[in-house]
Computed example of a mutant assay.
Amino acid sequence: MTQAPSPADAMLDVLRGCWQATFRDLPFEPDLPWAGSGADSLRSLHFMLRLEEALARPLALDLLEQDMTARQLAERLVREEAQATDDDTPLVFLLPGSLGDQPQLAAFRQHLAGTIRFETMRFPDVGDDMSVIGDIPATARLLVPVVQRRQPDGPVHLAGYSFGGIVAVELAHQLVVAGRRIGSLTLLDPFLRHRAFRAIEAAQDGETVPRLVGGNPFATADGGRLALLVDKAAFGIPLTLGALGLARRALLRGAGRLSPETLFWRRQRLIQRLRGRALRRWRRRTIDAPALLVLSDEAHRHFDAGEWDPLVPRRQRLDVGGKHVTLFRAEALARIAPAMTAMVTGREPA
């Protein structure tokens, strides 16, 4: 009689399939640390996206560590699934910034580990329907069934950082329309103004996102001056003129011959433009739910924080100072964590 595989072995088989689909030129070695496997950062991201699809649930950026083996990753995924079933720690659906999950959000989640569980949501990417990427209500509609499946009943707790704060408000509205109750809404330095958002996202990109690009951000994998100029024009000119559909087609058409660094850089620029367009077109919503509005000094410089008053009338405002990109440093987290814990659990901090 054949013995059924253990949950960890079954999960390892899922990882093997995702690996072979992503890293066709690399052997799958379950006990080799990720850093020594030859997997580059861009394809590792693609691997994680495939794994999300295979498991039908979002995965956090900080799940995969450089010294972790595939076997350890499988064991961790099985352990998290078991904890999610048994754990009565409050669950919060976290909406990241415009570029998706980032290291500063990993630090935020780790700081609150043991107090709050996070499900980090994934936004549509450049390979998805562009009309959805550039539309906040359409993006939220994709996330509603994820929330409903992950938490079929009870009050829903949402949190959103930067652009994700706006999506969190829209998602809260759509969940209320669907008959759900919003237990809490935590807005982490959200930006209501399109121009302010563009300025902040540009600064965030320069300060916190790894610069994978060398001296020329339009460099191609195979080089060649003429090819470089043609490639630069095909993507850069439509992007500059706001013809984002043409820029997207150029990006996808050239993805196979672009270096990972250039592909990463172009994805950032295009995603920022699409999210900015979405924010400009968004129709503001009012959410009657307990809300925590966390603001940096930078937010106060770009717009009047009182603009949030009619949108989240049951808000508590927390001014933590600093810049948008330093919102999750230790001194700010020391103030955010107890306030958010009290908001989510309904208990005053000790």
Rank of each mutant, 00 (worst) to 15 (best):
G223I: 12
A54C: 14
Q3M: 11
P313F: 02
F264S: 13
Q110E: 11
D31T: 06
A56V: 10
A60T: 14
G165D: 04
P260Q: 06
G256K: 06
D304I: 03
P124R: 02
D87W: 01
G224A: 07
A82D: 10
A56D: 15
V176C: 06
V167M: 03
G127S: 01
D128S: 12
M121H: 03
G160H: 06
D297I: 01
G214L: 15
A138Q: 03
A60Y: 00
P210I: 12
T120E: 05
R181Y: 08
T208W: 00
L295W: 02
I182P: 03
R301E: 15
L32G: 02
T208V: 15
V92R: 00
R275F: 01
Q83P: 00
E307N: 15
A8P: 01
S162N: 13
L99M: 06
P238D: 07
T341A: 15
D128P: 02
R180N: 05
A107V: 04
F123C: 00
L311Q: 04
D129E: 10
L244W: 07
L55C: 14
P124A: 10
L105P: 00
E331I: 08
A107D: 03
R141C: 04
F264A: 10
E81R: 15
A350S: 12
G256S: 11
S44E: 06
G224F: 11
Q268G: 07
A339K: 02
S6T: 15
R335A: 14
T89K: 01
A221H: 14
R266Q: 10
D129K: 08
P96Y: 03
R79N: 12
D135A: 09
P7Y: 05
D231Y: 09
A289T: 05
L12D: 02
L49G: 05
A233P: 02
E207N: 09
G100A: 13
T240Y: 07
I287F: 06
R193G: 12
E119T: 15
M11N: 05
P310G: 05
Q204P: 00
L64F: 12
G224T: 11
A39E: 14
T120F: 01
T69E: 09
L64A: 13
L171F: 09
L270V: 07
A337E: 13
P90E: 00
W34P: 00
A299M: 14
L192A: 07
T89Q: 01
L45W: 10
Q66N: 09
A332I: 01
I287S: 06
V167W: 02
R329S: 05
D86E: 14
L274A: 06
S184N: 10
D309C: 00
R181W: 01
G206R: 13
P260H: 06
T69D: 08
L239V: 08
Q102S: 02
P7R: 09
T286S: 09
G224P: 02
T69L: 06
